[in-house]
Design a protein around this nucleic acid. Structure first.
Length: 298
DNA sequence: AGCGGTCAAGTTGAT
DNA sequence: ATCAACTTGACCGCT
């Protein structure tokens, strides 16, 4: 298993910055561009430091925050990186991150937020989502990220019709997006059983989140789902794991714990060549604790 | 420096 | 009807 750290650090002094659209809109166009340029440059350099940290700590994957280029596609602020004051330097730094990640075999991934939907019947939402996916793909090309992972979205009262819209919308995606797109089961609407057929038919890899599956079961066993998920991948598969904040019998088990309880990792995963993204609030500490547990187990 | 209100976006389900 | 949750709480204006 290759363990992956998600987006941020708790104690390690590596921070990603952003700005609100309203605060940017108050500035002159010029000042806004200047501020965005600085934020993007800072974030590119933070990404480099994050990847160096992963290399030192033996962490094999890093999920890149979707706000790495703040307010990138918002109508009030949207910009092209090339046209920012430090555009060239920003792109250079991201490309350097890509070279470093490749050299040190650190996989980079994206998980765009909940507003990115291919299942909506509202074409404005779909168009916005595609724009946002294109933005992720642009940064993915610089950094070498090979996964842009999203959920199925809403059911809108009819899951099968919603999935049919997803299927149709896939045809509208650019190659840069399509070659990286993956679908993940969520904890409210779309189970592995819902998504696996679509993934198989459309040639889209399935990211198996076992925590979500435990929160929203579908009759498939974990081992069966694991096998079916593996079969959808044409490269190293990606899985997600987390532990419930207050235990499986506590309130709202979908909330994430600070750490991963080793027993929440399916035994069948332990010897697989897969990337397991660790969704735990204690971030780098959770990775360290889990890595130590895995080493002891050998 | 520290505080509380706010932040672009969609959908769901708990309250 | 409101609100928290979601991959991630951070930003911003005020004191």
């Amino acid at each position: 298993m290759r363990l992956g750290l998600c987006c941020k650090f708790v104690d390690e002094p590596i921070r990603f910055r952003t700005a609100t659209v309203t605060s940017l809109a108050r500035l002159s166009q010029r000042d806004a561009r200047q501020k965005l340029s600085q934020l993007c440059l800072t974030n590119a350099s933070s990404l480099a430091r994050a990847l160096h940290y992963c290399a030192e700590q033996g962490i094999g994957a890093f999920r890149i925050n979707s706000q790495i280029l703040p307010a990138k596609t918002h109508p009030a602020t949207c910009y092209r990186v090339k046209e920012l004051p430090d555009g060239k330097e920003i792109i250079d730094q991201f490309e350097e991150c890509g070279r470093f990640a490749r050299d040190r075999d650190i996989r980079t991934l994206f998980h765009p937020d909940q507003f990115i939907l291919l299942s909506s019947a509202d074409d404005r939402i779909t168009r916005r989502s595609i724009e946002e996916l294109d933005y992720h793909a642009e940064v993915a090309e610089w950094t070498g990220a090979d996964v842009i992972n999203i959920h199925g979205g809403g059911a809108y009262g009819n899951k099968q019709e919603a999935l049919e819209r997803v299927r149709r919308n896939l045809k509208r995606l650019s190659t840069a997006v399509k070659t990286r797109l993956t679908f993940e089961n969520d904890d409210r609407v779309y189970t592995p059983a819902d998504l696996l057929p679509l993934c198989r038919d459309a040639g889209i890899p399935f990211v198996y989140d076992v925590h979500h599956h435990r929160c929203l079961p579908d009759g498939l066993s974990i081992d069966d789902t694991t096998q079916q998920a593996l079969a959808t991948w044409n490269r190293e598969p990606v899985f997600h794991v987390s532990s419930p904040k207050a235990g499986w019998r506590g309130p709202n088990p979908s909330r994430h714990h600070d750490y991963i309880q080793p027993r929440d990792i399916p035994v069948s995963w332990l010897d697989l060549d897969v990337t397991v993204e660790i969704e735990a609030k204690a971030k780098e500490h959770a990775l360290r604790r889990l890595t130590a547990w895995l080493a002891r187990r050998r």
